[in-house]
Design a binder for these strands. Structure first.
Lengths: 199, 199
DNA sequence: TATCTTTTTGCACACACTGCAAGTTTTGAC
DNA sequence: GTCAAAACTTGCAGTGTGTGCAAAAAGATA
């Protein structure tokens, strides 16, 4: 029973995608409703209509189900930075790539807001987010060193530029949140890049 | 049987301190020898000569026993920044406080090296370290806003200065490590602060 | 010595997570 | 439509982390 047409391209892929999304949203909802600690993996599975064992086929940990951060984003941005026009200086390349990325995230502001609200209230999740940010920063640092072709032991400035760029991103996010998610995040980011000397 | 004299001031406090240290060193040693995952909390307890249950009286998690990072360092540095002479600009205060802190860490280079080696090889621990760094950054951001008396929603520059300072610290550490922990970390940090515009 | 406090320990338990093997669904070829 | 291969789901059994509780051991106090 495939009933193609009511459901669009009903292949295995899309079913998996929907199951994953059901699990993720169930995880976030339950965590918001009753707290992260008080929510068990079994409950999330039940809410999404799958067996407990299946939950762990989709997410390695309970935290992953809530944060749901893309594990290969660092690699993707690394590539994006490396593939930028070679005449650009590190700061320019980083700025372009990170601006694109933030524009993408602006597409789903609710998700971002729920995530950061949850993270603010539960240390496990904020640690998790910090870890994801750190892996991203490391990937960007490697990317700019690759572009520059210099030795990290001698050249401090190149790696530093990537860390300054990430600092600007964090500052922009923080300000955005402090301002009640009002106004354009991309604009704030632009200001932050300028203030951080990323140009 | 207190035998004061063979052991120094043998009170309850010092016994606890030594037990904690035994657990920490046993945890680090075992994790280095056979890997983090392959080391169980029970084994750490046994190696330190205490019961498994006691292990968790000293450390909330296995990760804590290895990282052993001081949970109230953020609060301490927050205070240090706030208490700096009021004529100093944020960047100056941050630079002074972080320089002091790094000088302290330079006192035990072996510990730092083992930690970062372990963290580099096991994602759980690097996530943990990133989380600790993030909590520190957040504390410093709050501290400089407190000094400035401004609203984070309007004033981006103040919070950004704290994040730039932390970026400089990370860059200096990274370079130091890339250079085989050779030379003065404090010197590298000074260069990094200058390059990041923290002054 | 007697007593009060702190620490250690054992026990039972909830929950996260994994390997494995058996079931079910989906797919693609005929 | 039938059938076999591939992919996905599930149950089961087990390891390991981490917690509450109450009894035992150790240390401090007088």
């Amino acid at each position: 029973m495939t009933t193609a047409g009511t459901d669009g391209p009903t292949d295995r892929e899309s079913k998996k995608r929907r199951t994953r999304l059901r699990l993720h949203t169930a995880a976030v909802r339950l965590a918001v409703e009753r707290g992260y600690q008080a929510t068990t993996a079994d409950e999330i599975a039940a809410a999404a209509g799958v067996s407990p064992r299946t939950f762990f086929n989709y997410f390695a940990t309970k935290e992953d189900a809530i944060v749901g951060s893309d594990p290969d984003r660092p690699a993707r941005l690394h590539r994006a930075v490396v593939e930028r026009p070679s005449h650009e200086r590190p700061a320019e390349a980083l700025r372009a790539v990170l601006t694109d990325q933030v524009r993408e995230m602006e597409g789903d502001p609710d998700l971002w807001r729920m995530r950061s609200t949850l993270a603010a209230s539960t240390p496990e999740l904020s640690t998790r987010l910090a870890g994801a940010g750190d892996r991203l920063e490391t990937a960007l640092v490697e990317a700019v060193y690759l572009r520059a072709g210099t030795d990290p032991a001698d050249d401090l400035a190149t790696g530093l530029s990537a860390r300054l760029a990430m600092a600007a991103v964090r500052a922009a996010f923080h300000q955005h949140r402090a301002a009640g998610a009002d106004g354009s995040l991309a604009d704030r980011l632009d200001t932050a890049f300028d203030a951080a000397g990323v140009r």
